[in-house]
Design a protein around this nucleic acid. Structure first.
Length: 257
DNA sequence: ATGGTGGCATGGCCA
């Protein structure tokens, strides 16, 4: 079972990219972030034509998440964080086969010390409490998403800039990610690869992709029960090379053979 | 240093 995560930065613009990548990569499950469209406009028919059933939670202009599953409808769908009031559509969870999937579009946070940064940390604390319960209910748990946090210095192109005082790498953000991992979750990419300089996001500005000035902020986390089944994990750089790309590349984990 | 690029409620906002 191949499970992936992709921030498409507008599904209106990126539907052709998603369709091509589904054909190329043939994932079984995909968490999509930043769909940026209302539920009424979600392209579920186009995705069904490729064999994928979709569940989604969106809004105009900002945010929006979905889970796609090949050949079966995601079941027991949960939208949002229970008990956490939030206008922003950033969370969807569902069961596919015998695996519980949680898809997160983590708050960006703008800059350390801003109101948005405080919201990011509050939001992450609420996610942690919810995932503690979710993990107890569903030992076979995979959490994917745009985490908007680079786990450590290997995951940034310039550790002198991207460090404790900077958004996406600040100590409080990394501590919040650590608190999620401490629930018994593992960054699947790091189960198989300890190299530095493998990225999933490159800013549109300053020719960052051409210069490979990226960060690894798109993650797939597997629970203790799935750790031994996570046989491979990676990032597909190719869609970032296409015309009019998302600024993110898909990240994936494979469970079993 | 407060721009650089891209998306969308096309006018500022968010990333």
């Amino acid at each position: 079972m191949k499970i992936a995560s992709w921030n498409v930065n507008s599904l209106n613009v990126r539907l052709p990219h998603l369709e091509q990548w589904l054909k190329d990569a043939a994932p079984d499950v995909v968490g999509i972030q930043e769909t940026k469209l209302d539920d009424a406009r979600f392209p579920d028919d186009a995705l069904a034509a490729l064999g994928y059933r979709s569940v989604f939670s969106g809004q105009k202009t900002y945010n929006g998440v979905a889970i796609l599953a090949r050949g079966q409808a995601p079941a027991d769908v949960q939208v949002g964080i229970p008990g956490f009031e939030d206008e922003q559509k950033r969370v969807i969870a569902a069961t596919v086969g015998d695996v519980r999937i949680v898809n997160l579009y983590v708050v960006n946070g703008q800059d350390v010390g801003t109101d948005k940064y405080a919201y990011k940390l509050r939001w992450l604390a609420a996610v942690r409490d919810w995932l503690a319960a979710e993990r107890a209910l569903h030992p076979r748990l995979v959490v994917v998403g745009d985490f908007n946090i680079a786990p450590d210095a290997r995951d940034v192109h310039d550790p002198a800039v991207w460090n404790e005082g900077h958004i996406l790498t600040s100590t409080a953000e990394r501590d919040a990610l650590r608190a999620l991992l401490d629930l018994g979750l593992h960054d699947a990419f790091r189960l198989h690869n300890d190299e530095a300089g493998v990225f999933s996001w490159w800013d549109y500005r300053q020719a960052a992709f051409r210069r490979d000035l990226g960060l690894r902020i798109d993650l797939t986390l597997v629970s203790d029960a799935l750790r031994a089944e996570a046989v491979a994990s990676g990032i597909d750089r190719e869609p970032r090379t296409w015309e009019r790309p998302s600024d993110h590349a898909p990240a994936w984990v494979r469970l079993g053979v």
